[in-house]
Design a protein around this nucleic acid. Structure first.
Lengths: 410, 410
DNA sequence: GCGAATTTCTTCGAGGCCCGAAAATGACGT
DNA sequence: ACGTCATTTTCGGGCCTCGAAGAAATTCGC
């Protein structure tokens, strides 16, 4: 069944991966430091590094400045990724915009395109063609990268096909239904990976705050939708091992408020911006939700609530309640020590917190283990991009570059 | 950070583990078959097998019967576990009984003790002493096993300490609070492992029905409590990587029915036997639950409901609703293709099913991916025992026997 | 009854990889 | 200039896996 044989070849692959991984998370380092981190002997690090240098995956940096003049002994030669070893194209698709980025192997942003997306975009242009066109612009603007482009990764929202070739459902109009990842892979000849936005949030926030890197965090996005990603002891877990969940569409109240997805009672229907607005303005909760809420309208609502407006606070109370019970139900299965609220809703954390904590306190798990710490981080775009980039580059490290044939010794 | 170096020593360990694992799930086999399953070469299998034979971990079976007379060529010599290589003691503790089993390395039951447990048991005898006493009886009755006893494993219910030394909370009276696993390990000098019953159910049902072995299954116990274990594509996932969840105490209704755990609105408060009984007899749902429901009373209720009694069917409807919404919420994070109901409640599956399916159908994930298949298996004791045994023996394979020093070649 | 065919298992040498120890390297201090 | 010191490379030994070829144990065909 599982052919997981360990021969000497896979040992080398494993150890190359270890070194590339250490370089990825620790930046350029000396061979000695790498030996310490990976646990390999100096001799092995040297041997592997010779291969990596010969294959132009890494390069020696002319040690620029001695951090401290007081260093005795032979100065270390730092080794870092060869920037031109590979490029990756990253797409972040959202309800109203696309951001396409070209990143080099060392993680430096080389080029970026941002364009608006409307509900009619994918009616007029099939998703596969749409991404192909913007991939071509990226390639055209940086010809030298086009040759060594190795991967394409797309951040999406919705429910993935079992084979990750596209989406079965998405809040982004007309994006679901086609196997655009498959089409794009065929047309470009490159591997294409789809990642759920919630998962990338969880991945990205880990890199954002080093203190959280090893603890268990549930990252909840609150904004035009509600989403969650889980990171347990540094490992991402969840739905289909994919690490993302349909938290926003977890049921909160049987037969409750109408959600944008068409179902009733989803957490999102209470806690996304449109849900809070609907409650605050006493619109019946079975009214079809508005397509998009302008950021300033949402901010104005927060200010009203902070000023004490009862209708507005009621909206945030119901949202907090929905999120809180959702988290309480999630915590029957996972027990993160921290909960991180990101996105526009993070600015309203003080309004949400009482009901969130009340709901959590009503659960057995929290009574026994104590409440998790709830933090806020208003920006969500940086973590998503970071998560997408690190995920893609790490995959490149482990899949492509750890496996190259061994250096031809004489 | 993660010292995960792959040296030639760990290669051997890995491949030994591969062979032991194949033997564990496939039973006694020829070397050729093992080479095919593990992907190792014949030469390596032979070398590893010589070590294993010399260390008396496995033995050659005098090939008893030729399955089919039509076999040409040299007959295969089957290799199987040496039964006396090790013994493990397994305890299954429940609200009203303890079952202690002694099992040999090949998975054959050698001895078994069953005794009643009452709410006062752990008041009179501290849990550590209680288990130690029964461990001694097992040892006394099979002296030759006592010498090679290698591990102790206990199936428990409740919330574990972070270090797995005991329980923070348990429905079993007075079991929580002491570090009985730690005490028992100290007194016996053997490693002690605690496993949550829900997790073992998931593990055990995989071995029960080979068809389910590779698919994703949520196993739900319905009886005196409600519990769930998850097995995704053959891997067990969930709470703290522990594979078990507090599904029974996931909130179903804010401020709902009083649960045995003291909180309100847990799924268990609606779907455990006492909850169904309480609903059916129109007892207020804030009435403290009865300590135990006799099996015949529960069966009688099922029969009444099957006969069409409206009060009884109402009880099962509410139970199905609670389970259904719980599963729907769980499926926002996992997507098992099958749901297996085990325990006394499995006999009432036909009564539960309509509300369970209605609740699932109201969720976005099921609308997109379709409903999972819901199956029943009334017996829960066999899967729990099997899960406990296989988990413990596999751990023994991988941790103890895969790592023994290499055969001393001349 | 005896050799050919067939399947299983073992032996043997080659090739890789990792490790520890020892040597080489390169800068600093005196 | 020369010792000190930290980093890096080289070298030899020890394991491990693998493929190929040989040994072993049956059945088949005549």
């Amino acid at each position: 069944m599982t052919r997981n044989v360990s021969d000497s070849d896979s040992v080398r692959r494993q150890n190359r991966g270890l070194i590339l991984g250490a370089l990825r998370s620790g930046g350029p380092q000396s061979r000695t430091a790498l030996a310490g981190i990976t646990g390999l002997s100096h001799a092995s690090v040297t041997a592997i590094m010779q291969d990596l240098l010969a294959q132009r995956i890494v390069e020696e940096l002319t040690s620029p400045e001695r951090t401290d003049g007081r260093m005795r002994g032979r100065p270390a030669t730092l080794v870092g990724f060869q920037r031109a070893a590979a490029y990756v194209a990253l797409f972040e698709i959202d309800v109203n915009r696309l951001r396409a980025s070209l990143v080099d192997y060392s993680g430096v942003l080389v080029d970026r395109i941002e364009i608006a997306v409307s509900p009619s975009t994918f009616v007029e242009t099939p998703p596969g063609d749409f991404f192909a066109a913007h991939l071509d612009s990226l390639r055209g603007r940086t010809p030298q990268a086009a040759r060594t482009l190795r991967r394409i990764a797309i951040s999406v929202q919705g429910i993935l096909n079992p084979d990750n070739s596209g989406l079965k459902w998405s809040p982004i109009a007309s994006l679901a239904g086609s196997s655009f990842a498959h089409d794009l892979a065929r047309d470009s000849g490159l591997p294409v990976a789809l990642y759920k936005r919630g998962r990338l949030l969880a991945e990205g926030t880990r890199w954002l705050d080093p203190g959280l890197l090893q603890s268990s965090v549930a990252t909840v996005f609150v904004g035009s939708t509600v989403a969650m990603g889980l990171s347990l002891h540094g490992h991402i877990t969840g739905r289909s091992e994919g690490g993302a969940t349909e938290f926003g569409h977890m049921n909160h109240m049987p037969n409750g408020a109408l959600c944008r997805c068409g179902m009733r009672g989803c957490i999102e229907a209470y806690a996304a911006d449109y849900g809070i607005l609907r409650t605050s303005y006493s619109v019946p909760d079975t009214t079809p939700p508005a397509p998009a809420v302008p950021a300033q309208q949402f901010d104005a609502l927060i200010q009203r609530a902070e000023a004490g407006d009862r209708d507005a606070t009621h909206g945030f109370n119901l949202a907090g309640r929905a999120i809180g019970y959702g988290l309480s139900r999630m915590m029957a299965m996972f027990d993160p020590s921290h909960i991180l609220i990101v996105g526009p809703g993070a600015r309203a954390l003080d309004l949400l917190r009482p009901e969130v904590e009340a709901a959590l306190a009503a659960s057995l798990v929290c009574k026994i283990n104590g409440l998790p710490k709830i933090l806020a981080h208003p920006d969500e775009r940086e973590p998503i991009f970071r998560g997408l980039m690190m995920k893609t580059l790490s995959a490149l490290d482990q899949t492509d570059f750890a496996a190259l044939e061994t250096g031809s010794r004489v």
